[in-house]
Design a protein around this nucleic acid. Structure first.
Length: 209
DNA sequence: ATGACGATTTACT
DNA sequence: GTAAATCGTCATA
């Protein structure tokens, strides 16, 4: 079924609140040929803007790359890293604030065979377990074929090729086991207090992280 | 113009 | 556990 879009007001809050709130929401990718690929968000990280040493917008840095992070809540911020991977964020807060939530893992729902094909690359698609399809920020982008073309897309516009939905039953089920908070991953050079700040959120019951 | 460095993943020892 | 892959971006000059 098609989940209704999330309300923009629900996203126009601080990154920490938004990151917690996005656990259980559904990310939907639409490809040419009526192909739908979707999954439920089970792991997120908050990036808190100018004050956050680990954020791309630290000290108000504004460049062509991170421009979309300053757009209104509900905008996608997709960036290229390590010369080979894409990662995606959901912009939150107020327009011009530069705060966002990194999506780190999904529970695959629709288009699982397409995910396999997109993630396999040179490998045998059948060798990938379902748990391995979207369990990482760059993995989920590969699985849903999210790349730089989707940077700056409005995730709350129903005609966008990438949207954010909220099905109440799915949402509740994903959050049933509770939500765990831990420090963020891969930001070791950011220094304290940011390295140990508990800004990563995980659906504790999920095997898909 | 140049160089250092990633909000990572994968394969290999 | 360790290391390679791989290149756009950004700060410095």
């Amino acid at each position: 079924m098609i989940p209704p879009l999330i309300d923009r007001d629900r996203l126009a809050v601080d990154a920490e609140t938004c990151a917690e709130r996005l656990i259980g929401a559904t990310l939907v990718r639409t490809l040419p040929g009526n192909v739908r690929i979707s999954g439920v968000i089970v792991e997120t990280e908050a990036y808190c803007g100018a004050e956050d040493r680990a954020a791309h917008t630290f000290e108000g840095r504004r460049t062509p790359r991170n421009e979309s992070m300053y757009q209104r809540a509900g905008t996608a911020y997709v960036y290229f890293t390590y010369g080979m991977h894409f990662c995606m964020n959901v912009v939150c807060g107020d327009e011009g604030e530069g705060v966002a939530v990194l999506l780190r893992a999904l529970e695959p729902v629709e288009g699982i065979d397409h995910m396999r094909a997109h993630r396999a690359g040179k490998r045998d698609p059948a060798s990938l377990t379902e748990r391995d399809l979207c369990s990482g920020p760059a993995k989920l982008c590969a699985a849903l074929r999210v790349d730089r073309d989707l940077d700056r897309v409005d995730l709350l516009d129903p005609v966008s090729p990438l949207t954010l939905g909220l099905d109440q039953a799915v949402y509740d089920e994903a959050r049933r086991g509770g939500i765990l908070r831990t420090p963020r991953i891969g930001i070791d050079s950011a220094g304290e207090p940011w390295v140990s700040a508990p800004l990563r959120f995980v659906a504790s019951a999920s095997p898909f992280v």
